[in-house]
């Protein structure tokens, strides 16, 4: 298989397979989760579950002061790499063009040097996050294979994307192919791992906020 054939496979059949696994898996997983259902609350409500749920979906992104002080690194690094991932994935011109080409949706991009710098910061932060996971007694204790796997498949697209952008080591064709392949790996593993939190966290936050909101508490 030549490099061009590899790239063609990666952006053709492989992407198609990855898309199917990704979309099918996410939809199935969310339905499977939500369909477990929950009992109606018979206690007299003090507040609105719906309002509470929606509120917590948003407000849980901002920690309270005490929590921030106790978990500063986790929170700051979490913010940086999540925003970094958002910027590199969604505000990089070629990525937007890809979405435009496939779905006909387009939005303004950030200048490439800005995205480039963001990618560097995000890569460094993700490495720091990994070190933290390996060193912090609680995180090290909690973490298993899947936690490290999830880290790796998140890190790889960023790394291969950075290398492809700067064309280091291999031919550009190969670098782009590897970058797309790493994204496909992420997509295929997504529904089977805790990467699902990308979507399920909003459901989780909704339930948390709804349970509290029903009792008149802002959670």
């Amino acid at each position: 298989m030549t490099e061009t054939e590899f790239l063609l496979w990666v952006r053709g059949p492989a992407l198609q397979i990855a898309t199917i696994v990704f979309v099918l898996g996410i939809v199935a997983r969310i339905l499977q989760m939500v369909m477990l259902g929950r009992k109606a609350n018979l206690a007299e409500a003090r507040g609105s579950a719906l309002a509470g749920g929606l509120r917590t979906m948003v407000t849980r992104s901002v920690p309270d002061k005490g929590t921030f002080q106790r978990s500063t690194f986790t929170i700051v690094s979490g913010y940086i790499f999540h925003i970094g991932l958002f910027v590199t994935i969604f505000l990089f011109a070629p990525h937007i063009l890809l979405v435009d080409e496939v779905f006909g949706l387009s939005w303004p991009a950030l200048p490439t040097p800005v995205v480039d710098a963001t990618a560097v910061v995000t890569i460094i932060t993700l490495l720091a996050v990994l070190i933290h996971r390996l060193k912090d007694p609680v995180m090290r204790f909690l973490s298993g294979f899947s936690d490290y796997l999830v880290w790796l498949v998140t890190f790889l697209p960023l790394l291969t994307g950075y290398i492809a952008f700067h064309r280091i080591g291999l031919s550009p064709t190969m670098l782009i192919a590897l970058h797309i392949l790493s994204v496909e790996l992420l997509m295929v593993l997504f529904p089977f791992t805790k990467l699902m939190h990308t979507f399920s966290l909003f459901i989780a936050r909704y339930y948390n906020g709804a349970i509290a909101g029903y009792k008149g508490v802002h959670s």
């Binding site: 952006r11 099918l24 779905f103 797309i180």
Partner: peptide, 27 residues
């Protein structure tokens, strides 16, 4: 060079349908 050569939206639409069916069955 990075754009897909296969019909991705179509695959995605089918996947949503299949995912819904699979999800309901698993649920």
């Amino acid at each position: 060079i990075s754009t897909p050569t296969e019909d991705i939206p179509k695959a995605a639409v089918y996947a949503v349908g299949a995912g819904a069916a699979a999800g309901v069955a698993l649920g």
